[in-house]
C-alpha cells in the first residue's frame, strides 16, 4: 500500500470546498467558502467530534471527506491515498470503507423500498453476497442494531424515528466500513432515544473497531462520544483538543461561549452560573469578516484580529487553537488581554 508516510486513517490537508453563487453578467461572482483550508488527522479507532453552529461548514466538511460534495482544493488521505483526486471508478471501490449516517432518518431512507432492500442494496452493489445469503446478512445486521429480523419486509413509514436511525446505521454497516461520518445522527430524536443511539454507536465502535467523525451541534453528546473535539467556525477549525480538555480548559473565546451556552439540567448550577452571551449572529459565509472570522463577536478582539487570519497552532500538547492573541508561552487570553499584550508572534 502506498502511503504518505504516517499512520493516520484519515488525513486532511488544506481541504477546501468553495461554492460559487452565480454572479450574473455584471459584478463579481460570490463565493461561499464553506470549508476553507482545514487540515486535521483522524486516528484509527477514535471518534473525532466536530461541533459548530449552523452554516459553519461542518456538514460540508463531512461530505467532502467522502466526496459526496466535491472538494475544490486540498487533499483527503485515506490510509495514505488521496481520495480528493482519485478517478471516479477507484473512488467507488473506496466507498465500501467509508460510509455516512444522516441526520434525518425520515428523509434518508427510500420510502418505496422495504428494510430488506434498503439494507441489502449496498451488499448487492458491492457484490459482497448474492441470493439468500444477502437476506441472512440483512437479518444479522438488523439484530446488530437492535431491530427484530421479523421486520425485514416492512417499509420505513412503519418505524419510529429512532428505529429508522437504526436502519440507517445498519445500511452503513452493511459493507463493513472502516470509517463512518455521522452527521447529526441524534438531533432529530427524542431524549430517551438519543441515549439508545449513542450507546449503539459506541458498542459498534468497540465491536468492529470503527472510526467516527461525529458531527453535531449538541456539545453534551459530542463530549460524551468523542475522544477529541474540533470546533469549527465559518469554514475553519478554530480549536482542537481531547474531549476532556476542551471542556475543562477551552482556550478560544468562541469555544467557551459555545460551552457556556449549553443549559445544564441542574437548577442549582443554572442559578449560579455566569453565562457568556455572544452578541449578534454568525456572520454570512458569503462575505466572512476579514482577519479572524470571529472578531465581530469576540470580546477580546483587537485591531490585529481584523487584519490577520490566525493559524491553527499547538498551544499546549495535543491542544491546538487559532487566535492571534495566544501562543504556547502565553496560553491565557484573559491574562494577555489584561497585560495589554497585543498580537503574539507577529
Amino acid at each position: 500500500m502506498e502511503t504518505n508516510g504516517n499512520q493516520h486513517l484519515i488525513s486532511l490537508d488544506d481541504l477546501r470546498v468553495h461554492f460559487r453563487l452565480g454572479g450574473g453578467l455584471f459584478g463579481e461572482p460570490k463565493v461561499v467558502k464553506a470549508v476553507d483550508g482545514v487540515s486535521l488527522d483522524i486516528e484509527k479507532g477514535e471518534t473525532l467530534g466536530l461541533v459548530g453552529e449552523s452554516g459553519c461548514g461542518k456538514s460540508t466538511l463531512g461530505k467532502a471527506i467522502l466526496r459526496l460534495t466535491e472538494p475544490t482544493g486540498g487533499r483527503v488521505y485515506y490510509n495514505g491515498r488521496d481520495l480528493a483526486h482519485m478517478p471516479p471508478s477507484q473512488m467507488r471501490e473506496q466507498r465500501r470503507h467509508l460510509q455516512m449516517i444522516f441526520q434525518d432518518p425520515y428523509a434518508s431512507l427510500n420510502p418505496r423500498m422495504n428494510v430488506g432492500q434498503i439494507i441489502g442494496e449496498p451488499i448487492r452493489t458491492f457484490k459482497l453476497a448474492s441470493g439468500s445469503t444477502v437476506e441472512k446478512m440483512v437479518g444479522d445486521l438488523m439484530e446488530t442494531v437492535g431491530l427484530s429480523r421479523r421486520f425485514i419486509k416492512r417499509y420505513p413509514h412503519e418505524f419510529s424515528g429512532g428505529q429508522r436511525q437504526r436502519i440507517g446505521i445498519a445500511r452503513a454497516l452493511a459493507v463493513d466500513p472502516e470509517f463512518i461520518v455521522a452527521d447529526e445522527p441524534i438531533s432529530a430524536l427524542d431524549v430517551s432515544i438519543q441515549a439508545q443511539i449513542m450507546n449503539l454507536m459506541e458498542k459498534l465502535q468497540t465491536d468492529k473497531g470503527l472510526t467516527y467523525l461525529f458531527i453535531s451541534h449538541d456539545l453534551r453528546a459530542v463530549r460524551h462520544l468523542s475522544d477529541r473535539v474540533a470546533v469549527m467556525y465559518l469554514g475553519k477549525i478554530v480549536e482542537l483538543a481531547p474531549g476532556k480538555v476542551i471542556y475543562a480548559d477551552p482556550l478560544m473565546p468562541y469555544t467557551r461561549a459555545l460551552i457556556s451556552a449549553v443549559p445544564v439540567p441542574d437548577p442549582e448550577i443554572e442559578a449560579r452560573r455566569e453565562r457568556i452571551i455572544l452578541q449578534g449572529d454568525v456572520p454570512s459565509p458569503i462575505n466572512p469578516p476579514a482577519g479572524c472570522h470571529f472578531h465581530t463577536r469576540c470580546p477580546f478582539a483587537i485591531e490585529e484580529c481584523r487584519q490577520r487570519a490566525p493559524q491553527l497552532v499547538e498551544i499546549k500538547p495535543g491542544h491546538r487553537a487559532a487566535c492571534v492573541r495566544i501562543n504556547a508561552e502565553n496560553p491565557s487570553i484573559e491574562a494577555n488581554a489584561s497585560a495589554g499584550l497585543g498580537a503574539i508572534g507577529s
Binding site: V191, A195, K203, R220, R223, H224, K244
Partner: peptide
Amino acid sequence: SVPDPAHEQGDPLYQ
C-alpha cells in the same frame, strides 16, 4: 440519560 459533560466518558449512558 442526558450526558453530563462533567463526568468521565467511556461508560455507556443510561438508556
